[in-house]
Design a binder for these strands. Sequence first.
DNA 1: TAAAAGCCGAGTGAAACGGTAGGGTTTTAA
DNA 2: TTAAAACCCTACCGTTTCACTCGGCTTTTA
Lengths: 148, 148
Amino acid sequence: MKFSTKGTYGLRAVVELAARYGEGPVSLAAVATEQGISEAYLEQLMRSLKKAGIVKTARGKSGGYLLTREPVRISVLEVLRALEGSTDVVDCVGSGANVCENACTCSARPLFLKLQSRINAVLEETTIGELTEDHIEQKKRIEHARLS
Amino acid sequence: MKFSTKGTYGLRAVVELAARYGEGPVSLAAVATEQGISEAYLEQLMRSLKKAGIVKTARGKSGGYLLTREPVRISVLEVLRALEGSTDVVDCVGSGANVCENACTCSARPLFLKLQSRINAVLEETTIGELTEDHIEQKKRIEHARLS
DNA sequence: TAAAAGCCGAGTGAAACGGTAGGGTTTTAA
DNA sequence: TTAAAACCCTACCGTTTCACTCGGCTTTTA
């Protein structure tokens, strides 16, 4: 019941891009350094994000990664799904397939259904834009505290 | 971000015991058969549940497992924690230790904190008693439908 | 035209998952 | 009193996932 580092790293990387939204492509190296993630590993995550239509790329010299949309129009759910495959706590709560044959008599399923809907609500209503604003504020506060 | 089968199996096993609460010890074999779980594997789960003070045992012939408390006084959170170790979505939201050194500047942490509190709320407020009642009702409905 | 960037597939050591095997010890019913 | 039913415990094991790394390729632009 843990998110893998893919989710956390990827989320942080997307926020990093969001913080520079509108300023042109950001290189992998820049994001990796800023977030303290291995470049080679981050590249894999970026590939997933690209496939999911969350980031796009500019190739060649002075190229890099960009968000495909405004940060407020990207939900956290979307990012996590791209990286983790799914955010379902058990397979049988997903829509459509994978519902096991005993679903209707499984005593734990009602709990999981309720839990999943609560989780999805939070992940869906939170946007990258929000996360980014909060993060910038937080950084400012720390800077202020350091100087005084 | 999945629960392992330990969580699901264990929850179902505890509900099974809850359904027979007050009727004396239930053998491992009975629970395993009813829930379609391997006996050897279920035993391991039962050990964890015993260590956590959720079930107790009666040894020897005609022995078996029993809940230590009324089903309504056992929360789902307690059961899942016993089996999965922790229900935290990332280590850094736990109380006390394991908060990574970059916690205060991590852009994803506020999200995880919020998510975790919602998850804990559901798992804490749901009891084995509730799950058991719902399950018994559900079984009755199916039986009725089958007969008509 | 060379250097900087992204693109891509394969490999790898460690850990967790989902069990199985095979031996205990304790209790009780016949 | 003794055999069988039940729980107790440790060890192992094949598979999958995790968290990376490596090395070579293509594209672009200063």
